[in-house]
């Protein structure tokens, strides 16, 4: 690691002040599960690290009339155990299958949402868009994007919780720069970079993600289905999170379907949503939703199989949300 100056402020204001001075050379530290390895490999070399874990206002889960507010430094094991999150199985299912007790206890919600991609070209120092995408395109792209991959960005968005939170209509509270404060849908935290100057996260370095607020009307069915190769903490091959509102007769009134690990951003499938709305959930409909979700896929040379996996993830997430048997292993 390159050396850096370090601070552990106790308030948001202090943190923002620390970020404001040299935002481009400052990194925010929470659980450290991603930042510390990145710094060890010198893929990230901040001059300043601001540890936000000691900021009381960023901790904990608070239930209120509009739902819950989750502090960004709340650890995933706390989320898993929180009774306030019972209405959000889509979130808990991910954490329960995270594949590492240690990561559950160390990783924070905010940190999980802001992880850098696991793309092995990026992690091996070739840059996120290695040779304008050519490295991935002609290289080993077995884990890369099958959607939104026609530009230079071919990595997949690494967050496992973002699809669930997007399906749940969650917003994040963003503080900074300075006194400013905004609310941003989780969906809009991510973008597909078009060139090397763009990051995959839309937050500016002077901003702090402080809280996450799932927005969900009572009784919305939701679930996440991850297809994982093995039980360890490695990223899933594809995931899908689904939130469904049914009317009194069991017909889908609204649906949100979000796939993970398939595109440079968490991938919302309007096609799948359209298939679901106005119908009653059953095996055939779930199958159709899966097929619709991957219809626009443009697989690379080695990841055709991910189309099938993503399709299955969507199908099973729909079934799981509806309380039906998903089948499979």
């Amino acid at each position: 690691m390159k050396n850096f100056e370090y601070a552990a402020p106790r308030t948001e204001e202090e943190a923002l002040a620390l970020l404001a001075q040299r935002p481009d050379q400052t990194a925010v530290l929470a659980g450290g599960t991603d930042l510390v390895p990145l710094m060890k490999k010198m893929l990230v070399t901040p001059q300043r690290v601001v540890n936000i874990k000691n900021i009381d206002s960023l901790r904990g889960i608070h239930a209120h009339s509009q739902g819950v507010t989750i502090g960004a430094v709340t650890t995933l094991d706390q989320l898993l155990e929180a009774p306030e999150l019972e209405p959000y199985p889509a979130v808990k299912q991910v954490i329960a299958k995270l594949g590492s007790l240690q990561l559950q206890c160390q990783m924070t919600l905010g940190g999980e949402l802001c992880r850098r991609p696991q793309c092995w070209y990026f992690r091996n120092g070739y840059g996120l868009l290695g040779r304008r995408g050519q490295l991935v395109e002609q290289g080993d792209n077995r884990y890369h994007a099958i959607l939104d991959n026609q530009g230079p960005a071919k990595f997949v968005s690494p967050s496992r919780l973002a699809p669930a939170l997007i399906a749940l209509g969650a917003v994040v509270r963003v503080a900074g720069p300075g006194q400013q404060e905004t609310t941003v849908p989780v969906e809009r935290l991510y973008r597909t970079p078009k060139d090397d100057h763009q990051r995959e996260l839309t937050l500016s370095p002077a901003q702090l993600l402080t809280h996450v607020l799932p927005k969900l009307s009572q009784g919305t069915l939701n679930a996440t289905y991850e297809v994982k190769h093995g039980t360890g903490p490695q990223p899933p091959l594809a995931t899908a999170s689904v939130a469904l509102e049914l009317d009194g007769s069991g017909v889908v009134r609204s649906a949100r379907v979000v796939m993970g690990q398939v595109a440079p951003v968490p991938w919302r499938s309007r096609e799948a949503e359209e298939v679901l709305v106005g119908q009653r959930i059953g095996y055939e409909l779930a199958e159709l939703a899966g097929a619709a979700a991957v219809a626009p896929a443009t697989p690379l040379s080695q990841n055709q199989y991910k189309v099938q996996i993503a399709k299955t993830a969507v199908k099973r997430a729909v079934l799981l949300a509806a309380g039906l048997e998903t089948g499979g292993l």
Partner: peptide
């Protein structure tokens, strides 16, 4: 009391 990785934890923390 919670299990974490000492390899990815800063001592100052």
């Amino acid at each position: 009391g919670k299990p974490i990785s000492a390899a990815t934890t800063l001592a100052l923390d």
